[in-house]
Design a protein around this nucleic acid. Structure first.
Lengths: 118, 118
DNA sequence: CTAATATATGAATGACTATTCATATATTAG
DNA sequence: CTAATATATGAATAGTCATTCATATATTAG
């Protein structure tokens, strides 16, 4: 593989791609956000919390998961600052911490035609 | 774990979450899109193609990958209708096929402050 | 047809990760 | 303090997946 002589515009496109390339850090940032919300079990939790704050027991009920699995995913969401936790007596109440993620999900649902039905 | 009596609003929130719940199909759709673009190697390819169409050789050059790895990722992007391929002589020229994905990425970059520098 | 070029692909491998199970920690009631 | 409740967590497991290596396919030049 030596040359691609069928279209010299490609050389310029490659040049532009290199100039406009995201920093490695930004690339990791944006990709890790997509990765976190790409897991259905986590997306379900986020969607549930979009309706309002919930304690673990009710999140488990809303997403129909097991306590342990939900708790592990809550940890990942919290570590990624997508949700926040506050203690309220015996319960830990979770809520959305990042409005940007909400907007990304909302806009994506519109684009992918996965909006709320009503 | 029997009751959560510290806040009865949670019951209503769970109710709303169940009513507004996405269909399983939509959930898979949106999550699989996020999954595809959550891999840095694939995101690099998409970002390169945002500058213009490219043949495989030039994609390899733009993203600084190996031919085989890039080819495998191109396949996944094509299977997911994010890019399209057309043959041009000895080369296969790839280009973005889904404007929605572009918008999602652009908006996400704004939200996450990963915009182009200039 | 043959050689060279461009791209694709199958299998193997290693890395990552979601879930489960068992258990630990924290809070409150009594 | 003790029991019960609510949540978190560590280890094990199984499944997924990105990359690599070797090779196959397709196109063009001669």
């Amino acid at each position: 593989m030596e040359l691609c002589n069928h279209d010299h515009d490609h050389e310029e496109t490659v040049h532009q791609a290199k100039i406009h390339a995201m920093s490695e850090e930004d690339l990791q940032t944006i990709c890790s956000v997509f990765k976190v919300i790409s897991e259905p079990s986590r997306m379900r939790i986020i969607l549930a919390l979009m309706e309002g704050e919930l304690c673990v027991y009710h999140i488990v009920e809303a997403v129909e998961g097991t306590q342990s699995a939900v708790s592990h995913q809550l940890r990942i969401l919290k570590d990624n600052k997508i949700i926040r936790a506050r203690r309220d007596g015996k319960n830990i109440v979770y809520s959305i911490a990042d409005e940007h993620i909400l907007n990304i999900i909302k806009m994506s649902r519109q684009h992918l035609h996965c909006e709320v039905s009503e």
